[in-house]
């Protein structure tokens, strides 16, 4: 079984700061991590490989420094890493990104064997769009299972997969055919620690590095900023509200009493509403 896992190297959002004057992102010194959602996809892929045999190829598109995340994926036990890097890919929106990744997956298929499953995380923490998985599926003509909470069964002989997909108000149990694309939901597994042997292998491993041309991109105008139908016209910090919060003064009385008085003073109807809410009317 050959499984491709798409990952993205993202800035650790917990450590992003915005310049107070220019409102621009201060990227310097912000550590990068593998998009946390992608680790659930990677672990799911590794579990299937361990069960059925075969290989896991991790793929990322990004600057040359994205190699760090690929090596990290190898330490967890991935068998092969492919880095898609080219200045032509810069500034890609989700449509241009899926063009590049789908092209690279075709090349992976030709070079290392056709994938049975392509995995992605449900979304990234920097873009948060959840569009790239479905976009890759559509471009490759793969069936898609998004927001998968659990893979119940994969039958490599019958070429089928059964999975539980999170939907509004419940779980859909779906059965479809391989090859397909799966986006994994968070907290569905826990990434393994990785064996010492894998860590040693990762340190020495040759990362397969492809430019747009290497990957077989035929139309460079479909890549990067040029190939993006959306453009970002403006980036800005939200304007502060005109008035700041009214601070509750509790010098002479219990703070809880002072706060409740302030609330009921501001919204006289609130007390009656709270009473009906608290008593379930």
């Amino acid at each position: 079984m050959h499984i491709v896992v798409c990952i993205k190297q993202v800035p650790d959002s917990a450590q992003i700061r915005v310049h107070p004057v220019t409102n621009t992102i201060m990227r310097q010194g912000v550590p990068t991590i593998i998009n946390p959602y992608d680790l659930f996809a990677l672990e799911a892929a590794l579990q299937l490989r361990d069960k059925f045999g075969g290989e896991v190829t991790v793929l990322t598109m990004g600057p040359p420094s994205a190699e760090d995340s690929l090596r990290r994926a190898l330490t967890y036990g991935a068998d092969r890493a492919v880095l898609l890097t080219d200045r032509f890919f810069a500034g890609a929106d989700t449509l241009a990104t899926t063009y590049a990744l789908a092209t690279a997956i075709r090349k992976i298929s030709d070079t290392f064997g056709a994938p049975d499953i392509v995995f992605t995380g449900k979304q990234t923490i920097d873009g948060d769009t959840a569009q790239v998985g479905p976009g890759i599926a559509k471009r490759l003509g793969l069936l898609q299972l998004t927001y998968v909470a659990k893979i119940n069964e994969v039958d490599p002989a019958a070429r089928t997969i059964e999975a539980e997909r999170r939907s509004e108000g419940g779980v859909q149990v779906l059965k479809t055919k391989l090859p397909c694309l799966v986006t994994m939901l968070e907290a569905t597994n826990e990434i393994r620690r990785g064996a010492m042997a894998d860590a040693l292998r990762a340190a020495r491993a040759q990362i397969v590095t492809w430019s747009a041309k290497d990957a077989g991109v035929e139309d460079i105008s479909k890549c990067g900023l040029k190939g993006s139908p959306t453009i970002v016209k403006r980036v800005f910090a939200p304007s502060p509200r005109a008035e700041k919060a009214t601070f509750v003064d509790f010098a002479n009385r219990p703070p809880a009493e002072a706060l409740i008085e302030e609330l009921f003073k501001r919204q006289p109807k609130l007390e009656a509403e709270l009473i009906s809410s608290a008593h379930g009317f």
Binding site: A130, T146, P229, T230
Partner: peptide, 21 residues
């Protein structure tokens, strides 16, 4: 979950832009 699953597929099929959330 439904809307995001569908929107990504439709936008890619139509090759148009999609702005999420």
């Amino acid at each position: 979950t439904l809307g995001r699953d569908l929107a990504g597929s439709v936008a890619t099929t139509l090759l148009t832009g999609l702005t999420a959330d």
